[in-house]
Design a protein around this nucleic acid. Structure first.
Lengths: 111, 111
DNA sequence: CTTGACACATAGAACAGCTAGGCATATATG
DNA sequence: CATATATGCCTAGCTGTTCTATGTGTCAAG
């Protein structure tokens, strides 16, 4: 009995990554840390979710990648938003607003 | 190129169903109509999502089902919340609040 | 008499997220 | 020196949710 627990991200991961990358070029590992930190530890992005998501976003033309030296002195893959990615982020943020409004409408319904 | 569109519910369906059923005994078909109506047409619950979800919730002991006569005069399967279902609903609502707060934190981050 | 709304249902595909692994380097600790 | 921890990348395979596409049958309206 798995007793639930998982599936925390509920389809928001792509949007969150796009948003973080929109703040400035950043590498994958740092993205997950940043998401965790800003969300006050609510989101813990597993690497098995993170890297496939990054590849997905890159394949769709929303992110560009480039190997560079990280502050640690080691090579890391830095991502930045493409023009398409910026539009996609806007669309996803708008959709998220509508979604959470719709959920709120239902949860607020009494009798 | 599918150009996106689907995957509207993003893991909220179970919570929404539990909430609607919490308002009073109701049958499946009416649940989907009610969700659609209250959300101002944002959510359109497909039957291929609805019925599997109802069976899922029943199997987990969150809903009880009973065949009764609908207002249309025809037989329909009416659902009501169990005690476990009520607790589950509370837990999911709380988790949703935390999730949307965390998302808001990230989306509001500037620079 | 046939179309559309009601009401139930399943099969199969697509896809996201998870666990669990693997590889490699740098730094800190005993 | 050894080794543990943090950094940084990655994939394979499972599970679970949602979707599309069907299928059944009833009832009312035209």
């Amino acid at each position: 009995m798995p007793e639930d627990k998982s599936e925390v991200l509920k389809g928001t991961l792509d949007m969150l990554i796009l948003k973080i990358v929109a703040l400035g070029p950043i590498h994958g590992y740092a993205i997950s840390q940043r998401i965790q930190q800003i969300s006050k530890e609510f989101f813990q992005v597993q690497q098995g979710s993170l890297y496939p998501a990054l590849h997905r976003l890159e394949n769709r033309g929303w992110l560009d990648a480039e190997w560079r030296e990280a502050s640690s002195g080691r090579e890391a893959k830095f991502y930045k938003l493409t023009k398409k990615g910026r539009k996609q982020l806007e669309a996803e943020v708008l959709n998220w607003a509508r979604l959470s409004d719709a959920v709120a409408l239902i949860l607020r319904t009494a009798e």
